[in-house]
Nucleic acid binder design. Structure first.
Lengths: 143, 143
DNA sequence: TACTAAATTGTAATCATTACAAATTAGAAA
DNA sequence: TTTCTAATTTGTAATGATTACAATTTAGTA
């Protein structure tokens, strides 16, 4: 059940610890781009001894090893995502949801931009998500 | 001297106030993507009565009116930029500088992405800037 | 010139994140 | 298997950006 995550950690020569496994599993099974608090409260249920600081520390370690990445899209808190295949993100300014956007962009794979060495690319789109647009229509129709 | 900024505010039916004019002028003359503190301390010198809260409020107003935009690229604080022509941003993880990147991307002008209504697009590139790369080389050569 | 809604100001929260030191533990070595 | 140690986890106490809020001031209109 955790073999997959054990392997990931070992492949990066990281110590295999319970918090790291649980965080990895959580991010792998919940592609909702959670913030630290969401991860913490979800895992705290099963592991009451878990510390918030550990979540911060573990996320930082996983990020440094490029196993996960953090998104600054919200502007007020970091959101986390498993690293799998390049994609961009959309945030709904109404409901706050962060949604994967599968697009390819000629600039994504450029390792040099304007003479600067690029190590990470993030495309952020902001607006109203499909779901919230439907709600809008519903409100209009119903008065 | 301030006519340009007066006009911008009036065109948006915003009240013309000293803080707004000064902030606009500052952003127009300093394309360094400053944070609130930088703007505040720079303007505080000339206008000792200026309040930090006013800087926050004014920036928010200017942002809502799409006169300026905020960047979440740093992850720890908002950075501000005058709205003029679509461009993306590069942040140097070494020196912290945020640099304009003039690129065109087919996704930039898309108003729909995956069914979501897009109102804002931001492309963030992270890595080592040209200047810091030169410094690296210098260090290597000298020792 | 007087009026009023909006803007400015200062102080006091709030909230995400970091600093730090003590306790625990994973994994290597014996 | 046991021992050892550096790395990790934990909890509490800062820090720092941002927001809330109430009092004061002011831009623009009547």
């Amino acid at each position: 059940m955790y073999e997959k995550y054990v392997k990931i950690l070992k492949d990066h020569t990281l110590k295999v610890t319970s918090p790291r496994l649980e965080i990895l599993k959580y991010l792998d099974e919940h592609h909702i781009h959670p913030n630290v608090e969401e991860i913490y409260s979800a895992l705290k249920k099963k592991h009451p001894s878990l510390s918030r600081t550990t979540v911060y520390n573990s996320l930082e370690t996983l990020k440094k090893n490029k196993i996960i990445r953090s998104l600054t899209i919200s502007g007020s808190e970091l959101r986390y995502d498993i690293e799998e295949g390049m994609h961009h993100h959309f945030i709904c300014t109404q409901c706050g949801a962060i949604i994967d956007i599968a697009i390819s962009c000629p600039n994504m794979d450029r390792t040099i931009q304007g003479g600067h060495r690029v190590e990470e690319v993030q495309g952020y789109f902001k607006g109203i998500c499909k779901k919230c647009q439907t709600k809008e229509k519903g409100r209009n129709n119903n008065g």
